[in-house]
Design a protein around this nucleic acid. Structure first.
Lengths: 350, 350
DNA sequence: GAGGTCATTGTGAGCGCTAACAATTCATGG
DNA sequence: CCATGAATTGTTAGCGCTCACAATGACCTC
């Protein structure tokens, strides 16, 4: 019941035209919503299309128009919340503009894998590519690669030579760190993300700036790899500093914050009474951590829309609306991990 | 430095042929790895290709061969761990077979959205589609829809009229429930997933069977919507049954289990000493819940490979290797939430 | 009623590639 | 030295569509 194998070859526009008693060009006009087609003719054609189950051939159309209306996306770690959300938002935004999205997911972003991915997408006829490339190495690779289509980077930071769209990570870190200072903490410690990630560097920079502006010497900084496990290990180390000046930690993402929370708990350290913890990302689970996590939310939907808009500008040869580097404001979400008040789940906006 | 706008039109095969002093067909042969090309000629052609930065035109090739080598994927909730992992695995498997993947992510799977997605993918020239369609309504919609290409469903359960690939949810539920019974619990309660999800139904069925085979009357069953919040609410209700026969809960996914854990904790109920909790999915965070969560792991990589293999069989007109419904075994991962022993994070396999 | 305009439809030429077949070259053996 | 067949290369005809332009006819104006 699912397929229609009435003929071996699917019907062509000419077949439809013959059936409707018009020329193939008229069929094309109907399909293309051209104004100058008599209603009666249009109806005839539509009826024939319906009856034959005709569908326009993508390849022929693309060949004739020289447009595939397909965008490529290169991503890695697509099972992480951030990249997955970005991917989703990108596809949605692209579809809204009438474009298809062809994805290549990489296990790791190196010059080689990135280059292969771009080659592959090029063979796939994409008109442009979005690279979700948060590692610095990836940005450099991107800048050095030749490709016959425009590329927009997401999450690479704004300093790049490649047009990019970013959430303002530095601002997010300032919000979180500032919030902890405002809550009365003298110093704020920091568990940073991987050195190679631009977003990690930006978050660290925002944290450091905020402390320095407040006249506080930034304490020792730990480093993790985004994983809960690395957060757990860092948390064990942090637990050793409780009572020696540690009262607040800004963790570079929620997953590591989860590990930190667990390590602190196991060490008998209470959150937030003994140590306040703030994260970054606002993953859906963050609200249900023990305790619910204060964190920084990024608007991926906007990231997706802006990225697609920028890429399409580049494809159409338009001057991008604004600069070629877009920054999006993140938002602080305060929950119990930094505050003794425990809100009801579901009450917080998220 | 990134683009090569040396000529307005990108070079064609004929341009390369002219430069190499051969016919365009010879260029095509070189690109197609045809055996009967003299090494010397091949070298000439490759040099010309390199020099001109030539890339074969996707649309022209697809038109001539009548093959786009593109598969479609329809998915919803792609930011959830399961669907995101499946998506990733599908793309990887498709790429390994030389296919492109064009994704359409839906916010909700209804007959209408599904139908639109299939239409759209059809316009995009896909040769086949994978539908990550865990809702029953989606399966029905799929069965009733006409489409000019084969469709393979993932996560729909094996009973469907549509060829499908599934993790054996029932078996997973039996593993978890059996584990709890074996640990000495007299009864196992159950927080089920949304009624409309086949996977939820299968997990519930596995739970119920296991209890019945053990001669135990299944206790009241709660229902959530996969979210931590719904788990939290159910957890509050469950907390009221502690001391009245409730000692173990099998929760239909990890995120709800997270909510349950929090609710129990807030109610002063200890896990696993007072109530053991098992989840389903083994999301990366599960190991770092408080306490680390016993759960059921699904091998998405295998799901991806088998789905693609099945779809390609259908596309090529081959009889699918085996039946048209593939089941994949899940795996129980035991952690502290069902056992008084607390393993070190990182020690558990995952 | 001639001339003009507009709406509507048709015709022909590609888009850049591959498949099928034709033509050429080359090595080999009788 | 030429026939024989294999290896190598070239030629031609589409694949199914859109674009540019031509053709037709209806309608209007003076």
């Amino acid at each position: 019941m699912t397929q229609v194998p009435s003929q071996l070859r699917p019907p062509t526009m000419a077949d439809v035209a013959r059936m409707a008693g018009v020329s193939h060009q008229t069929v094309s006009r109907v399909l293309g919503d051209h104004p100058n087609v008599r209603d009666e003719t249009r109806a005839k054609v539509l009826r024939a299309i319906e009856e034959m189950g005709y569908r326009r051939n993508f390849s022929a159309r693309a060949l004739a128009t020289r447009r595939t209306r397909t965008l490529g996306v290169v991503a890695s770690n697509t099972t992480l919340y951030g990249p997955a959300s970005t991917l989703f938002a990108l596809e949605e935004a692209a579809r809204a503009e009438g474009y298809f999205v062809s994805t290549v997911s990489l296990r790791e972003l190196t010059v080689r894998t990135l280059s292969e991915a771009l080659d592959r997408l090029s063979e796939g006829g994409v008109e442009g590519v979005i690279a979700i490339a948060p590692q610095r190495s990836a940005v450099e690779a991107l800048a050095g690669l030749r490709h016959p289509f425009p590329v927009v980077a997401v999450g690479t930071g704004s300093g790049a030579e490649v047009p990019s769209v970013n959430v303002d990570q530095r601002l997010g870190a300032r919000l979180a760190t500032g919030h902890l200072l405002a809550a009365g903490h003298r110093r704020v410690w920091h568990l940073a993300g991987p050195e190679d990630w631009q977003e990690a560097a930006d978050r660290t920079a925002g944290w450091r700036e905020t402390l320095e502006e407040a006249g506080v010497e930034p304490p020792m900084q730990l480093r993790g790899d985004w994983s809960p496990l690395s957060g757990y290990r860092a948390g064990q180390e942090l637990a050793g500093w409780v009572g020696r000046g540690l009262t607040a930690v800004f963790v570079a993402n929620d997953q590591m914050a989860l590990g930190v929370l667990r390590a602190l708990r196991e060490a008998g350290v209470r959150t937030p009474q003994d140590v306040a913890v703030a994260g970054f990302d606002d993953i859906p689970e963050a609200e249900f951590f023990a305790p619910p996590l204060t964190t920084v939310r990024q608007d991926f939907s906007t990231v997706g829309k802006r990225s697609i808009a920028l890429l399409l500008d580049l494809i159409e040869g338009r001057t991008p609306s604004g600069t070629s580097s877009v920054a999006i404001e993140p938002q602080l979400v305060v929950r119990a991990s930094t505050f003794p008040y425990i809100p009801q789940p579901g009450a917080a906006p998220g």
